[in-house]
């Protein structure tokens, strides 16, 4: 079975800096993968290559066997949605309007807005619990609600693959958990293949099925959180002395730095 998205020997250089040094990794179908690693390890660059926002210096990314670099931009956007880490909406934009923008790759000058678009947007809005707030200004929402609105925007793109760059940035503890549970719920409902960059290794352990650990632009290890998040591997990834306990609630590994 071909994986939904696979990277082969990705290298990325900016001038003399090597950002990615030959990464080959597949996203498992219908699973949530968390990309972890220290700052500057190439997490975001890898995600941007996967979403074709960044052209790798060499190597290639394939979508179900098709080389992404040779595909039409809109075709890619109909199959892969990517939510950048820092997003800004213009002043005066309303929740409904933002989510509607997710339909952009499905529209063309000839085919503008259809009942199907309307239905998908409604569905996305309901999925994230913002159906009642369609007419609210984005700037009136709380941070957590705003992040849910952006997630609804990429959901409205109606893709099988969802790439999220640190979806919990700027959120407090409760909202971090809420957003990640929402992603988990949506993934299960829609059978999505999700990859997200996460800084918090404990959240990654709890909310993902697969961990991709990077260091210095290389794939250090990957696999089930149970197997990847161990004292030795955390030592290797972050050069951090730590204890790994078992979370009494989820049964997943929990890292406590020494």
């Amino acid at each position: 079975m071909t994986p939904p998205l696979s990277c082969t020997d990705l290298h990325l250089r900016f001038g003399k800096t090597n950002v990615l040094n030959g990464i080959s990794v597949d996203l498992p179908k219908g699973k949530i993968s968390a990309i972890i690693g220290p700052n500057g390890s190439g997490k975001t660059s890898l995600l941007r290559c996967m979403g074709r926002l960044q052209r790798p210096s060499s190597g290639e990314v394939q979508l179900e066997g098709q080389t992404i670099a040779k595909m039409n931009t809109r075709d890619v956007a109909r199959r892969v949605a990517l939510l950048p880490q820092t997003v800004t909406a213009p002043a005066g934009m309303r929740v409904g309007e933002l989510i509607t923008r997710g339909r952009t790759p499905h529209q063309s000058p000839i085919r503008q807005w259809s009942a199907k678009d309307e239905k998908i947007v409604r569905h996305a809005m309901t999925s994230v619990g913002l159906a009642e707030r369609a007419d609210h200004l984005l700037e009136d929402l709380s941070g957590g609600q705003r992040q849910r609105a952006w997630i609804a925007m990429v959901l409205a793109q109606d893709t099988d693959i969802l790439l999220l760059d640190e979806p919990t940035t700027y959120l407090d503890l409760t909202h971090q958990r809420d957003v990640l549970s929402l992603i988990q719920k949506l993934q299960a409902e829609r059978q999505l293949t999700v990859a997200m960059v996460l800084h918090d290794i404990n959240l990654a352990a709890r909310f993902s099925d697969h961990i991709i650990a990077l260091k210095d632009g290389k794939l250090l290890t990957e696999g089930d959180p149970m197997n990847v998040i161990t004292q030795t591997s955390i030592q290797n990834i972050y050069e951090l002395d730590c204890n790994v306990l078992t979370d009494p609630h989820s049964g997943m590994p929990h890292v406590i730095p020494k």
């Binding site: 979403g51 926002l53 931009t73 809109r74 075709d75 890619v76 956007a77 109909r78 949605a81 990517l82 939510l83 950048p84 997003v87 800004t88 909406a89 213009p90 934009m93 933002l98 923008r101 997710g102 952009t104 790759p105 000058p109 793109q157």
Partner: peptide, 20 residues
């Protein structure tokens, strides 16, 4: 105006949405 509309969400997001 039609082409620019997705760019209000920022260049990165616009490109992810398939905008040229």
């Amino acid at each position: 105006a039609f082409l620019l509309d997705p760019l209000t969400l920022g260049e990165e997001t616009a490109r992810a949405l398939g905008a040229r």
